[in-house]
Amino acid sequence: MAREYKRGYKQDKPRNADGTFAYCEELEQRQIDMIHELISNGGHKTKACETLGIPRSTLYKWLDNEKFKKAYQTACERLYEEGLSDAIKTTLKLMKCQDSRTALKACENIMKLNGYLDTKVDVTQNPSEIVITLADSND
Rank of each mutant, 00 (worst) to 15 (best):
R3S: 04
R7E: 08
Y9R: 11
K10S: 08
K13L: 15
G19A: 04
G19F: 06
T20W: 05
T20N: 08
F21A: 02
F21L: 14
A22Y: 03
Y23T: 09
E26W: 03
E26D: 15
Q29E: 15
Q29I: 13
R30W: 14
R30P: 09
E37M: 14
L38N: 04
I39P: 04
I39H: 02
S40L: 04
G43D: 06
H44W: 11
C49F: 11
G53V: 13
I54G: 06
P55H: 11
S57D: 09
L63F: 09
L63E: 15
D64Y: 07
F68Y: 15
K70C: 04
K70V: 12
K70I: 14
A71P: 05
Q73F: 13
A75M: 09
C76T: 04
E77A: 14
L79S: 09
Y80C: 04
E82S: 05
E82P: 03
L84F: 00
T90Q: 12
L92P: 01
K93V: 07
K93D: 13
L94N: 13
L94Y: 11
M95E: 11
K96T: 10
C97L: 03
T102D: 00
C107F: 10
E108K: 02
E108S: 08
I110Y: 06
M111R: 01
K112M: 08
L113V: 04
N114G: 04
G115R: 10
L117A: 03
Q125E: 13
P127L: 08
I130K: 12
V131S: 05
V131Q: 10
V131G: 00
V131M: 09
A135C: 05
A135H: 04
D136W: 00
N138Y: 00
D139K: 10
